[in-house]
């Protein structure tokens, strides 16, 4: 009896939230699915039912395929670099030295900055006329003349990846640092007595403690990198020559710049599906890692 009463009360308490969630997430999602089967424009026409036409066009189109490759490259390279730099930074900040606390606080700064601020900052650094990067490289004698890092298809994506790494490696470092501090002092001491050098100590003794938390960081960062929009929008708007056009930029352009709501919706759903597949796969990995430890 009391179980039923508790269940009823629980549902009643959750009801306001459920109503809000349905209104702000459920309904738009359902409407997006409906839109994706129509040829609706953003303004003017309701659109007619076109079946799977939008999906066929999107999946078969070169724009989608190129954006998928760009997004995957962006996600893989930036997340890998963030993981490596983050772990190295954490190992460094876990050592005893003067000014360690100040440096730890300072490290969080890039991550704490709003993405738009970060992106604007890097646009200034990369500026082809007065950017700090050009000045530094010229003065070091590494380049002869100023270059437009964000204006050349060959370097724009790499420049974005660097900006993304700078912003996001502190998150990985923070998670890794917390994990490092959980490594029992006795275990490290035992490995010293056992004769493990720095590399073996990291591989056999420290890494098992880092693996779980790092996997969580990997999941979070990969999904975020796959969805990246704001950084690229502020810095390159997908250009030059679509060389930095990721899936999210493509969805935006399709739905809002070209005002094709129907095919924009189908693209958005495909991206959502891809991210969901990634999330589920990673969740499985995390569960497996948790089980193993």
């Amino acid at each position: 009896m009391s179980g039923t009463w508790i269940t009823t009360r629980a549902w009643l308490l959750m009801l306001p939230l459920l109503v809000v969630m349905t209104a702000v997430i459920g309904w738009p999602l359902i409407d997006t699915v409906r839109l994706s089967f129509t040829d609706a424009k953003l303004v003017g026409t309701e659109g007619t039912f076109v079946g799977l036409d939008n999906y066929v066009k999107v999946l078969g189109g070169s724009s989608f395929q190129r954006a998928l490759v760009t997004t995957t490259w962006f996600a893989v390279v930036s997340v890998t670099a963030e993981m490596v730099i983050g772990v190295l930074a954490a190992l460094l900040l876990n050592q005893q030295f003067r000014g360690r606390t100040a440096l730890r606080a300072l490290m969080i700064l890039p991550w704490a900055l709003p993405t738009v601020v970060n992106a604007t900052l890097w646009r200034l650094i990369y500026n082809p006329e007065y950017g700090a990067l050009n000045a530094a490289l010229t003065q070091l004698g590494l380049i002869d003349s100023y270059r437009s890092w964000l204006g050349e298809p060959g370097s724009a994506l790499t420049a974005l990846i660097v900006a993304d790494c700078w912003k996001n490696f502190p998150l990985v470092a923070l998670i890794a640092l917390a994990a490092l501090q959980a490594v029992p002092r006795d275990i490290t001491a035992a490995s010293l007595v056992d004769g493990a050098g720095p590399l073996n100590r990291f591989r056999y003794v420290i890494m098992p403690y880092l693996a779980g938390p790092l996997l969580v960081a990997l999941v979070l960062r990969t999904i975020e990198a796959f969805k990246v929009f704001d950084l690229i929008w502020v810095m390159t708007r997908g250009g030059p020559a679509n060389s930095t056009r990721t899936l999210s930029i493509l969805v935006y352009q399709e739905a809002f710049s070209f005002q094709r709501a129907g095919s924009g919706a189908s693209l958005a759903l495909i991206v959502t599906l891809l991210v969901t597949v990634l999330a589920v796969a990673y969740a499985g990995l995390v569960r497996k890692a948790a089980g193993a430890s």
Partner: peptide
């Protein structure tokens, strides 16, 4: 040329 036994055992949990 010493070996040490720790209070917390300090065994490597993954091995």
């Amino acid at each position: 040329d010493i070996a040490m036994v720790f209070q917390s055992y300090a065994l490597y949990p993954n091995m």
